[in-house]
């Protein structure tokens, strides 16, 4: 799936995820959480397709169920008692709270699955390259080494088989032992060959003063616009919460803010914040369709 938002500057991506995650994690308001959950769900399916649906059913749903059960089971606050289990009161409030916690954890995980699809490692390195240049280089190097080491582990395994050391056979201890010997060969290989890598770095001047950090990313007008829109929406929601336009109390009794025009606009603002990437994609679709029509 081609996603417009992921082609934006990583700073915009990062601001977006920070905003939605902070609000999702801090505000246990049912409507806000509902908006979060629905948007995150749609966006993750948009980004990851069938994989996301499978993940949601087999991993997310059970997790949310657990969260929904744990809360009323351990938390006996609240005044509207539903029933007693082993002398412990089960309250409506804690059930509501449990559902809210479940939706929250679900949304957070869904947001992260979108984050993982969009915030690739090079974007992370771009974001932090100036702040932690050495460590972001270490990350880049490690990302280079990991796939290489996995291939090497396979090669070593095959080479060991080639001299009669079959590692897939045998009992648990035997398997662990042969795994360790493969790992041991790999470690020596990795450490010894790393000397060359260090040489190659020195040969290209690593260690000189004033190293810069190059990136292919540009911060263009669209990125500015998006940043401004994101910040405005975010501040609106924050003010709404601080000023108690949007408020929620679970214990001792469930009390939510009233619903009126202003509140509706604030909900809409949050929904717009959450759905911003999808809105971008829809806009892109429309533009393309009209372009094609003009031809």
């Amino acid at each position: 799936m081609r996603d417009t938002f992921s082609s934006c500057n990583p700073i915009v991506n990062f601001i977006y995820f920070t905003c939605v995650l902070v609000i999702t994690m801090c505000v246990k308001h049912p409507v806000i959480l509902g908006i979060s959950f629905a948007s995150a769900m749609i966006y993750s399916i948009y980004l990851n397709g069938m994989k996301a649906i499978k993940f949601n059913i087999f991993f997310l749903l059970p997790l949310m169920l657990i969260a929904a059960i744990i809360n009323p089971a351990f938390n006996h606050e609240g005044m509207t008692i539903l029933t007693y289990i082993r002398d412990n009161p089960i309250t409506y409030e804690s059930i509501y709270y449990g559902i809210a916690a479940a939706v929250m954890i679900g949304s957070v995980i869904l947001w992260f699955s979108c984050y993982n699809a969009i915030m690739t490692s090079d974007k992370f390195i771009y974001l932090f390259g100036k702040m932690i240049p050495a460590l972001s280089l270490v990350i880049s190097m490690a990302l280079r080494f990991i796939p290489r080491y996995k291939i090497q582990i396979k090669r070593i395994t095959n080479a060991q088989r080639g001299i009669g050391r079959d590692i897939s056979a045998g009992n648990l201890i035997g398997r662990i032992k042969s795994g360790v010997s493969i790992l041991s060969i790999m470690i020596t290989w990795a450490l010894e060959n790393g000397v060359d890598t260090a040489d190659a770095m020195r040969a290209r001047g690593y260690g000189l003063k004033g190293r810069t950090s190059y990136s292919n990313f540009r911060f263009d007008v669209r990125d500015w616009t998006l940043t401004v829109v994101l910040m405005v929406l975010f501040i609106m929601v924050v003010i709404a919460i601080r000023a108690h336009f949007i408020s929620i109390v679970y214990f001792p009794a469930f009390v939510m803010n009233d619903f009126d025009g202003i509140v509706f606009i604030l909900y809409a603002a949050y929904a717009a914040l959450c759905l911003l990437p999808l809105l971008l994609d829809i806009r892109e679709d429309i533009v393309w369709r009209s372009l094609r029509l003009k031809i």
Binding site: F145, A198, Y206
Partner: peptide
């Protein structure tokens, strides 16, 4: 850097 990256 190399030795840390290798170990990671």
């Amino acid at each position: 850097l190399v030795i840390v990256a290798v170990l990671v």
